[in-house]
Design a protein around this nucleic acid. Structure first.
Length: 447
DNA sequence: TTTTGAGTTGTTCGA
DNA sequence: GTCGAACAACTCAAA
């Protein structure tokens, strides 16, 4: 019997998994997960989620997932030789690191005459597919979206998979912080249960409710999507054409758009997409670093900003609307490089995806796709009043101000209510910093 | 090739 | 409280 390897990466599921199906079509499958040394740089929350998910996947296979530590271009050829595999099957990874890694692995396997088969992608539409009539990629979301809709994949029925039991070759699973199980649905069954429950009650009202951080208005499926516990094409199957469903489809498409942008311009992970923005003045001196450190603790004195940061520090996740408010504050009130914020988010988010995260930051900073009007500066107080009118979200994450009433909680300094005992005064004056930001952005386009 | 309309998520000010 | 205008200039997509 031919042995094949399913190299598990961002596709931690058994259902609708074309890499697994490809491996199974060619032989009896050894599922392999390589613990790459670079994972050490992932956030604690993300690593905990990943291993909890893998453990669940292992159980779903009857315990045959093999873990091996080391550099993938060394582990895969050695492991393939060990089990006598003739091919390795995977879903392509489009992150800049993933592309380099996979090319190294392909070359290394080739020397042993083992084929690396790329049989799936983490996206409904493979990055690089959606192009204009002249064959070049799109840089604006809306036209991308319209064309992307025309490429949505067909559903393919799963064939039965025969697994090969080589569990004696596996390293043990690392200990898993029990917190992650308490906080997140782990594994395919639990994640689909979450989708079923959430979509039944929230999808119709998604348009409005997704912006309210105190309610369960967003799917919270970002981490499962990040690790492929479910695939976007599966979600798309469940979406009709109501306003809420349309909007949810657009959100899925944003994930694909940013992957596409990064695929074409991998260097924009950490440098401005719009090079003209390279002359935007940013602060990087010791004082800026001190302000950044205060920001990272969730002690800016702006409740909505601090609530978001604390939510992320404590849970590994932050509500999308609040991510924008927090990012805008860092870039436009503290005037530090967006890269600092992007790194900070990647260091803590459970769902941290390099394309969505870093291009989201570029969007906020005005350096990315969508030449955002330079005057679009979020006001943290009015955003708070608009999207958390009852202050419920603020109270959940900032106990120091939990006793303030609705009229005071969004801007506790205004009534002289510098809340007991420890909530800080605003670290900067937003009205001043807004003007400062406007003048800096204006300076970029010249007079 | 040229032209035209549009571009995720905002705020402030004055009527 | 509500509403519309102003806030720049530029790039992109498509006709």
């Amino acid at each position: 019997m031919t042995i094949t390897i399913w190299w598990i990466r961002r596709d931690m599921r058994l259902e609708d998994n074309r890499a697994l199906q490809s491996a199974a079509a060619a032989g009896s499958v050894v599922p392999l997960f390589v613990i790459d040394p670079t994972f050490a740089s992932a956030s604690d929350a993300r690593r905990a989620y990943m291993f909890a998910t893998l453990r669940s996947l292992n159980e779903a296979t009857g315990g045959v997932v093999v873990l091996r530590s080391g550099k993938p271009d060394e582990v895969l050829p050695a492991f393939a030789a060990l089990v006598g595999a003739s091919s390795v099957h995977m879903a392509a990874d489009f992150s800049p690191y993933g592309r380099k890694r996979d090319e190294k692995v392909r070359v290394a396997l080739e020397q042993s005459r083992i084929e690396l088969v790329s049989a799936d992608t983490p996206y409904a539409v493979r990055p690089g597919t959606v192009v204009k009539d002249d064959g070049t990629p799109l840089k604006v979301f809306t036209p991308f979206y319209k064309r992307w809709l025309g490429f949505l994949p067909e559903q393919i029925a799963d064939a039965k998979v025969r697994f090969e039991d080589r569990r004696e070759l596996s390293e043990g699973f690392p200990d898993i912080d029990s917190d992650v199980h308490a906080r997140w649905p782990i594994g395919e069954d639990a994640v689909w249960a979450r989708w079923t429950q959430w979509s039944a009650s929230q999808l119709q009202g998604y348009n409005d409710n997704r912006n309210i951080p105190s309610i369960d208005g967003t799917s919270q499926l970002s981490a499962p999507l990040r690790f492929g516990v479910l695939h976007p094409r599966q979600l798309l199957q469940h979406l009709g054409s109501s306003e809420g469903e349309d909007h949810f489809r657009r959100e899925l498409a944003w994930r694909e758009f940013y992957a596409d942008v990064l695929f074409h311009q991998p260097e924009t992970t950490w440098v401005n997409l719009q090079t003209k923005m390279n002359v935007l003045p940013v602060d990087t001196d010791a004082a800026a670093k001190a302000r950044f450190a205060q920001f990272c603790e969730g002690n800016t004195g702006y409740p909505i900003v601090d609530a978001g940061i604390r939510q992320m520090l404590q849970t590994g996740w932050m509500h999308n609307r609040v991510r924008m408010i927090v990012a805008s504050f860092l870039v436009k009130d503290l005037h530090v490089p967006w890269q600092w914020g992007a790194k900070f988010f990647m260091d803590h988010l459970i769902d941290g995806d390099i394309a969505s995260n870093n291009h989201g930051w570029q969007w906020t900073a005005g350096t990315g796709t969508d030449a955002a009007p330079f005057f679009r500066v979020f006001n943290p107080t009015s955003q708070s009043e608009k999207f958390d009118p009852t202050g419920e979200y603020l109270r959940q994450w900032i106990p120091e101000i939990a006793d303030l009433d609705n009229s005071a909680i969004h801007a506790p300094w205004e009534l002289g209510l510098l809340a007991p005992p420890a909530y800080p005064a605003p670290m900067v004056d937003h009205a001043n910093e807004r003007l400062e930001a406007l003048s800096r952005y204006k300076s970029v386009s010249g007079k």
